[in-house]
Nucleic acid binder design. Structure first.
Length: 425
DNA sequence: TCTGGGGTCCTAGGACCC
DNA sequence: TCTGGGGTCCTAGGACCC
């Protein structure tokens, strides 16, 4: 039986989320911006039609935005994560095997589902649209890479009506489609390898499909070899339906305003380490090291530049916010240099292991460990029920002048009592 | 004034061991 | 006139994705 893997992808996801609560924005040009209102990270079709590129700095687009009446939102991840969860749990009902690939994409295994797959996918689209209000497109094929490509065609090519099933097309039809698509559109082919492939005379998806997998492995790596096999319908990538624990946990952020003050950096690092420790405990893991990182703004070429990081090993794996913050602060003081205008700081947890496999040592202090465990569990429970940041370390500070800017954020319509979307009486 | 944040996988190269 | 060969483990860095 032919494998049938579907990729369901939300259209302009962040913009679509904003429109769910602002239906008046349907048909109007809308963008969503990254943290600090820095870059454009989601564009409505109207904005794409105007030629605005993905990830461009927003301040460079101000004029264009004014001219065309583009409406901008700061990113509201709380809202997007909540709508994403709703979409994903609905999708789960359509297949026994689901991989949630990103906040707005999910693979579903449709192999063995007897219905006509195109009609089945249309039912998926209608369900998501009706229950959550988000438009999605569906691509279906015999490998994940092909399913991504089918989804691309479903989005770009109106004749498919937002669903494209490669398994229902002939080899000739597929090759005609592939010949017209740039190799850069293939999942896993970035700008760098696209340039190299072009140099080898490989320009279209069809060129890549017909290329020698062995030769590409010699020139690049197994990654490119797999891509060619996947394009030929040989599935090399399985559906990952269990979410593996993170092997590294990063929390980093640009500041709303540059700062050269150590106390500001200390507050930021404590805040990030706190957040990272929460994520660590959520997946019931421990870390044996924390890396701290600071840097100036590399885009300000004329200003003196500095960037440095340091890995602070911990005496034993832990998930205790206090120990992680303590180590992070030590690291920060070691790499901090006065006289620079810092733009960003971050922390990264490494050496992550499941809490259940904590190594026993001669010097284990069971009482201290139990106390730490109880304290952290209590902290998490309170912050979960009363709102994130209800209880935090003093080091995080209360005057956060360095914190990020979000001038155009919409309301947290679904997760905050005071901001709920209510029907007019 | 003003350029995101959080991940994964792969490879090369060094350290170390026998 | 000048130093083996092979294996493993770890880390840094590149490339890519959303």
């Amino acid at each position: 039986m032919t494998r049938a893997i579907a990729l369901v992808d939300c259209n302009n996801f962040f913009v679509s989320c904003e429109r769910v609560f602002r239906p008046d924005l349907e048909g109007k040009p809308v963008v969503v911006l990254s943290n600090n209102d820095g870059c454009v990270v989601s564009r409505s079709q109207e904005v794409k039609n105007l030629g605005m590129k993905m990830a461009v700095p927003w301040y460079q687009m101000r004029d264009m935005a004014r001219r065309h009446g583009i409406i901008a939102f700061s990113s509201n991840y709380t809202l997007y994560a909540d709508l994403s969860n709703r979409v994903m749990s609905l999708l789960a009902q359509f297949s026994p095997d689901q991989e949630v690939y990103s906040i707005d994409e999910s693979f579903l295994d449709l192999t063995g589902i007897p219905d006509n797959h195109t009609q089945y996918a249309q039912r998926i689209r209608e369900t998501i649209r009706r229950c959550v209000g988000i438009p999605v497109c569906v691509g279906i094929a015999s490998s994940k890479t092909l399913a991504k490509l089918a989804n691309h065609i479903a989005k770009k090519n109106p004749r498919f009506g937002s669903v494209c099933d490669f398994n229902a097309l002939s080899e000739k039809e597929l090759n005609e489609l592939f010949a017209a698509i740039d190799v850069r559109e293939v999942w896993g082919v970035g700008r760098r390898s696209a340039d190299s492939l072009n140099g080898m005379g490989i320009h279209s998806v069809l060129d890549l499909k017909r290329a020698s997998a062995k030769r590409l492995r010699e020139k690049f790596s197994v990654v490119q070899e797999r891509i060619v096999n996947e394009l030929n319908g040989v599935a090399c990538l399985e559906l990952d339906d269990v979410v593996p624990d993170k092997q590294q946990i990063i929390c980093s952020r640009s500041f709303g305003a540059l700062t050269s003050l150590l106390p500001d950096l200390e507050q930021a690092v404590v805040a990030y380490a706190t957040r990272a420790a929460e994520k660590l405990r959520q997946q019931h893991s421990l870390a044996d090291g924390i890396q701290v990182y600071i840097r100036t703004n590399p885009h300000k070429g004329r200003d003196p530049q500095y960037q440095q990081s340091v890995l602070m090993p911990l005496p034993e794996p832990t998930d205790d916010t206090r120990l992680l913050c303590h180590a992070a602060l030590h690291g920060l003081r070691r790499i901090y240099r006065a006289g620079y205008a810092y733009q960003k700081a971050g922390v990264m947890l490494s050496g992550i292991i499941p809490a259940s496999t904590r190594p026993r040592t001669l010097f284990d202090n069971a009482v201290a460990q139990e106390k730490s465990h109880t304290l952290m569990r209590t902290l998490d429970r309170i912050n979960r029920s009363m709102g994130s940041g209800t209880i935090k370390l003093l080091g995080e500070g209360t005057d956060t002048s360095w914190a990020m800017r979000r001038d155009h954020r919409s309301k947290r319509y679904t997760t905050e009592w005071s901001e709920l979307a209510l029907c007019p009486a």
